[in-house]
């Protein structure tokens, strides 16, 4: 099995794995802390909006899942030549983007509804299904649009420079996703607090 031997020789050593992953992860730690700063700064909103804290990990997590998968599809499509790294109307690209944004909208609503009823079932306080859904939807859509643009641009730019998009879209989706989702969540909470 020549591919297997080559893989074992080239990629399977402890030091090579550590060397290739550690620098990127340390950058992710620093960026991730910025998301934490936003969360720490939301203390007042979190106290004023009971139930909001339940949504935080789920929203951060779905950013990574949806846009990580979007990046992975984009990477495969670029490698197969199904999508060309050019910013113009293309059916494959449009469908991929539409699917990612559609998933974002559906999951944002699903999350808020599940969170609301689970909170109530456990006898805890919730700000109500409408405000919770509004916050989840605003945060999900705003961060989703920015994240889609960022991933498409960076994957295209990287691919043109010879960088494997599979190596960069995953960490971008999770880390930029966390920061953007926290900022969007903060904004959405402020908007909803202003309305109610």
């Amino acid at each position: 099995m020549p591919e297997g031997d080559q893989y074992l020789k080239k990629y399977a050593g402890v030091s090579s794995i550590v060397k290739q992953t550690l620098p990127l992860l340390v950058i992710c730690v620093i960026l991730g802390l910025f998301a934490g700063v936003v969360l720490g700064g939301m203390k007042a909103s979190l106290e004023a909006l009971p139930g909001l804290l339940v949504l935080v990990p789920a929203i951060l997590d779905t950013r990574g899942n949806i846009f990580g998968a979007f990046g992975s599809r984009l990477g495969s499509a670029l490698h197969q030549g199904l999508i060309l790294p050019e910013l113009k109307r293309d059916d494959n690209l449009m469908h991929s983007i539409a699917a990612a944004l559609g998933e974002g909208v559906i999951i944002s609503i699903v999350l808020a509804v599940i969170a609301h009823y689970v909170i109530l079932a456990l006898g805890r306080d919730s700000i109500g299904i409408i405000p919770l859904t509004a916050i989840s939807l605003i945060a999900g859509v705003v961060s989703g649009i920015v994240l889609t643009g960022l991933i498409v641009l960076l994957a295209f730019a990287g691919y043109k420079k010879g960088i494997d998009p599979d190596n960069i879209t995953g960490p971008i989706a999770t880390t930029a996703g966390d920061v953007l989702a926290m900022v969007a969540l903060f904004m959405a909470a402020e908007i909803v607090l202003g309305v109610i």
Binding site: P57, D61, I106, I107, V110
Partner: peptide
Amino acid sequence: ILKTALPILTFASLLGIASGL
């Protein structure tokens, strides 16, 4: 894409809510 992704995303959402709790 939606058909493949939504079930697993919904499952992931449930776990996400669990960590939120």
